[in-house]
Amino acid sequence: MNAILTLENVSADLGGMLVINDVSMSIPVGQIVGLIGPNGSGKSTLLNLIGGTLRPLRGSIAFDGREISRLKPDAIFRLGIGRAFQDPALFVNMSVLDNTILPIQGQRGETPWNAPRRHLWVHEEQGNALSAQDALAQVNLDGHTRKLASDLSGGQMKLLEIARSTMGAPRLLLLDEPTAGVAPRLARQIFEQINEMRHTLGLTFLIVEHRLDILFDFADTVYVMHQGGILMHGTPDAVAADRQVREVYIGY
């Protein structure tokens, strides 16, 4: 199967401590890949490495066959890797609509010589507002476009982040605990929407998640992290049945 993202022998340190140790993984196009592991096992750090906010010490990260481990976060985003964070990271003083439009690439009104000439970009802006409206409708937020992002509820902020992460024409989305702090019923709904977006938008997902019951219902492959390394990977059933994984995850 075609891999959209491959990590080979990636290691990284934070303040001199090795937090990612020789990680290799391969994410096939169109899959929902889960990333699980106990707190502090390095899941979010791994997402930071892929997204470019952290640089690896060693190893290679290739997106679509192109090495990205030395690129800046904004360049990586423009290649087609979108992100959503564990604590909703929104522009709280901007409207829901502005938050959603922001990641769209190559907007004509964003260059200084075009910005004062409204006729050059007003149609494009309207088109962007419509596609933002569509993305917001996908997560049932289309009734809140004019609100400030800070006026949304915690669950709605999560949904807004997911809607926004689909706007920059991404092909791979890195989601860090999309259901954290969300009511159980809404959590399942979020994953249903993710699953739908995979089909309608042809997206690939790498999702860090603690709610294993829901994740296992939707994921194609699950990677298990432990102490900065990959413990195992496989189908949700294989992972759930693994004795080692159960030992790491006492109580599950």
């Binding site: 906010t53 800046k72 992100r83 990271a89 922001l102």
Partner: peptide, 11 residues
């Protein structure tokens, strides 16, 4: 509003 986030959003 949020410099790091702006950067991650491809600005």
């Amino acid at each position: 509003g949020n410099f790091d986030l702006a950067r991650v959003m491809g600005i």
